[in-house]
């Protein structure tokens, strides 16, 4: 299965550009790591429920009440680009 691993395609899904050198290196290293995790196939998991989380909490709510939090200024304080109290996003539509 890990023979199917395509670092270029996966890096596109991850929105992460790779250099030629990185792509070659990761292709080899991750194929090796995926080969290692193949050992999970040995385990009989028939009828076993998956664990997403070790605690049994579910449906945790808190009051949907207004409270003090960031001002617009604080929320924008770390933005690389901003104007008029808004984040500037690179153009989505041509």
């Amino acid at each position: 299965m890990s023979a199917d691993f395509d670092v270029r395609y996966t890096s596109q899904l991850a929105r992460l550009d790779l250099s030629e050198a990185e792509a070659a290196k990761f292709q080899e290293q991750l194929t090796h790591i995926l080969g290692y995790v193949e050992k999970l196939k040995e385990v009989n998991v028939e009828g076993v429920n998956p664990t997403a989380h070790s605690s049994e909490l579910c449906n945790v709510f808190r009051a949907d009440a207004e409270r003090d939090w960031f001002t617009t200024e604080q929320a924008l304080a770390n933005a690389p680009r901003q104007a008029n109290g808004l984040f500037i996003v690179t153009k989505v539509l041509e």
Binding site: D4, V37, V43, V45, V48, P50, T51, A52
Partner: peptide, 20 residues
Amino acid sequence: SSGYYDAYYLRAQKVRTLIQ
């Protein structure tokens, strides 16, 4: 990713149950 989720992630979550 689509096509690999069950084989890797879901299986790992099940083995996680066994480890617990």
